[in-house]
Design a binder for these strands. Structure first.
Length: 474
RNA sequence: GGUCCCAUCGUCUAGCGGCUAGGACACCGGCCUCUCACGUCGGUAACACGGGUUCGAAUCCCGUUGGGACCA
């Protein structure tokens, strides 16, 4: 059996989006599962729309997702000589021919055909008789067309969609080189896939309609077509193809929003593929379990909530040392000083780990640990930092100041003693302390907060808050 | 418009002739609780429609409808 070789072949006309990433992932997983090779090829023949920035963004996204390729990146613009050579080869054998029809003429014919309710396909004006190879025209612009079969049908045997039959009469003679000599998309793809010995083409099903033509080109180039697998597209919430107006679609945007690459892969793989009831897969599990048979046929809607949940799963199960490492760039980008004490940072993150779904959320939630410049939420302060609680707050400050061990159990007993002395419910004092220490009414457990903050910072904040309360007038 | 693809809870999906149609996200309740979460227990919710085939169809076939892709 020939080795499995897959490829991901994006056009560098924009960033790597969610849909492209999933296609890349499927190709990657399939190759790894079969211990084959995964190739990256940049399809940059559209020079108008291709940009170096896009190339860079795609490579960076691939690296971030750790979709490592064994060969490439190859660039089609560096391979133009090969396409030219293959075109000449077809020309010499009468399998392709020059066409001098002008765009205006073709457009007029198409309009006429439409008017008469005929199919607007190329009428074969320049198509030479079978087996003849006409000389190239001089002095007039011409494109090159592929001489496609006029009868019979072309069957795509698709690993996902099954057997799809196309009537050859529906397929007109494809232009393989424009009048300026540049080869066209469908042609370059076939030449490259032959040259790179790609065994399995896994791509979006928007390419399914191109496939019969590509198969005909394989035959014309005396090559055996590879296996095809057309995976369904990813849709937005309105069932339209996923695009910018559905929110972020760039893979790197999710990185910047504090998502984990593992979460991106895990979410995307489940959009169109499944393995029983399992939701969470490690990379190794995916490689082991991935198969084209389990890829679904129908398009799937991108669901940001579930994606967030998957990310949360990875965040909460991340070992603390790694989580600290992950979060540091986000601390920096928010302008907070990076704590020198790594163990302390890990403790702080540990109190927040199950309360945040992204690294960005995590930094936001950790801000009261990272800086002493906290501002008290005025509504919260008004509600909980009341004259009524002031005596208990002072008592708490005294108790905490005298504490030897500043661990949660010790702090809890300090609270208990104060509460008992004043006959107060725990909620009142806990909330008062929470607002004083964090600025808000929402935070990790108050004993943990105090313990992590440490005696000095705790007392400072409590005293500052207590000082801001007007004593009750009696 | 033509060609092609698709169709199970709101969403992702399991199901591959016999299931009280399962799981996950989201949503709604209970428990836990110093707040918010986590966790946990429970709940609402689907086989698009119509014909066949079959003892029996979510499952096979054909239509209809609805979505999508491609070609322009």
């Amino acid at each position: 059996m020939s080795p499995v070789r897959t490829r991901f072949a994006p056009s560098p006309t924009g960033y790597l989006h969610i849909g492209g990433a999933r296609t890349a992932l499927f190709n990657y997983l399939f190759a790894r599962h079969h211990r084959g090779q995964f190739i990256l090829r940049i399809e940059d023949t559209d020079r108008e729309r291709s940009t170096p920035e896009a190339i860079h963004a795609i490579l960076e996204a691939m690296r971030w997702l750790r979709l490592d390729y064994d060969e490439g990146p190859f660039f089609q613009t560096a391979r133009l000589a090969l396409y030219r050579e293959r075109i000449d080869w077809l020309l010499r054998r009468g399998k392709a021919y020059p066409c001098v029809c002008t765009p205006e003429q073709l457009e007029a014919k198409r309009q006429a055909a439409l008017k008469e309710k005929r199919k607007p396909i190329y009428d074969g004006t320049c198509r030479p008789p079978e087996g003849t190879a006409p000389a190239l025209p001089h002095g007039v612009p011409y494109s090159i067309r592929f001489r496609s079969p006029r009868e019979g049908s072309t069957v795509v045997n698709d690993a996902v969609k099954g057997e799809v039959v196309f009537d050859n009469r529906e397929l007109d003679d494809l232009i393989i080189a424009r009048s300026d000599g540049t080869p066209t998309y469908n042609f370059c793809v076939v030449v490259d896939d032959i040259d790179m010995r790609v065994s399995h083409i896994i791509r979006g099903d928007d390419h399914l309609a191109n496939t019969p033509r590509q198969i005909q080109l394989y035959h014309a180039l005396e090559s055996t077509p590879p296996e095809f697998a057309h995976v369904p597209l990813i849709l937005g919430i309105d069932k339209a193809r996923l695009s910018k107006r559905h929110g972020a679609t760039s893979v790197l945007a999710y990185r910047d929003m504090g998502y984990f690459p593992e979460a991106v892969l895990n979410y995307l793989v489940r959009l169109g593929w499944s393995h029983g009831d399992q939701e969470i897969f490690s990379r190794d599990e995916l490689i082991e379990k991935f198969s084209l048979e389990s890829v679904g046929k129908s398009a799937g809607v991108f669901n940001p909530e579930k994606f967030l949940w998957v990310n949360f799963h990875y965040l909460k199960s991340r070992p603390l040392p790694q989580l600290a490492e992950d979060v540091i760039p986000f601390i920096e980008s928010k302008g907070f000083p990076v704590p020198r004490d790594r163990a302390w940072l890990e403790r702080a993150l540990g109190t927040l780990q199950e309360r945040c779904k992204t690294l960005v959320e995590l930094v936001d939630a950790a801000s009261f640990y990272l800086t002493d410049e906290i501002t008290l939420d005025s509504k919260a302060a008004k509600k909980f930092l009341t004259p009524k609680i002031l005596p208990a707050l002072h008592a708490l400050i005294d108790k905490l100041a005298r504490l030897e061990a500043f661990d949660p159990p010790a702090i809890e007993s300090a609270f208990a003693e104060v509460l008992q002395a004043f006959g107060l419910p725990i909620a009142s004092l806990a909330q008062a302390a929470r607002v004083a220490l964090t600025g808000t009414t929402v935070s990790p457990g108050i004993y943990d907060v105090i313990s992590v903050l440490g005696k000095e910072r705790t007392l400072m904040r409590l005293r500052r808050a207590a000082g801001g309360i007007a004593p009750a007038v009696s």
